[in-house]
Amino acid sequence: MPRDDHPRARIAKQRKLAGYTQHGLALKIGYSYSYVHQVEGGYKAAGPDFTAACARALHVDVTALTGQPYMTELQQDRLAELIRPIRESLDLYDLGADPDVATRETPQLVDAAGTLCEHVRATQLNKAARTLPRLITEITTAAYRTPSTELWAALGSTYRTAHDVTVKLGFYDLSTIALDRMEWAAQRASDPVLSAVRQYMRGLVYHREGEHTIGLRLVDAGHFLLDQGEETPEALAVSGQLHLGATVIAARARDADTVQTHLAEAKTIVDRIGDMSHVHWLSFGPTNWSAHELSAFTEMGKYGKAVEKARKLKMPDSWPTSRRAHVWIDRGRSEMETGRSEAALSSIAEARKLAPQQTRYHPGARATIEGLIHQQRRTPDALGYMSSWLGL
Rank of each mutant, 00 (worst) to 15 (best):
K305R: 15
D4Y: 05
H212P: 00
E211H: 14
A112L: 10
M300P: 07
P85G: 04
Y206I: 00
T21F: 00
V193R: 06
Y144V: 04
A253V: 00
Y20P: 08
G96L: 10
N288A: 09
V60Q: 04
G274H: 03
Q124P: 02
L313R: 08
Q260D: 15
P2H: 08
H243Q: 11
D111V: 03
W152G: 09
G30H: 02
R202M: 08
V205Y: 08
A256I: 07
H163T: 07
A178Y: 00
P356C: 01
G47F: 04
L169E: 11
E234F: 02
P107I: 07
Y20K: 00
R352Y: 10
V193M: 04
L313D: 11
G96N: 10
A351W: 01
S34M: 11
D49K: 09
D77I: 04
A154C: 11
F284V: 01
W319R: 05
V307Y: 08
R272S: 15
L236A: 13
L135Q: 08
K16I: 08
A102M: 09
Y172H: 13
P48R: 07
D220S: 14
Q75D: 13
D4R: 12
Q68E: 15
V219T: 13
T287C: 06
K28Q: 15
Y303V: 01
H374A: 12
T158M: 07
E209M: 10
P320S: 04
A196S: 13
D191S: 11
K312T: 13
G245I: 00
D220E: 15
T338R: 06
H280C: 02
H59M: 10
E150Q: 15
T146H: 15
F297P: 01
F284C: 11
T72F: 08
M182V: 01
E73T: 10
V307E: 14
L74T: 06
T115L: 07
T131C: 08
K44T: 11
P147A: 08
L79G: 12
A367D: 05
Y20E: 02
E105C: 06
L135H: 03
A162H: 01
Y159D: 05
R340N: 13
P286T: 03
A256D: 10
K127D: 14
S322Q: 14
R121M: 12
G339P: 03
F284P: 12
I29S: 01
L216H: 02
L58R: 05
G30I: 00
T137S: 10
L392F: 03
T379H: 08
A129P: 12
I83T: 07
G203A: 13
H37C: 09
A162K: 09
R202C: 03
G222N: 09
M276Q: 15
L354T: 06
I29Q: 01
A344T: 03
A382L: 04
L179I: 14
A57S: 13
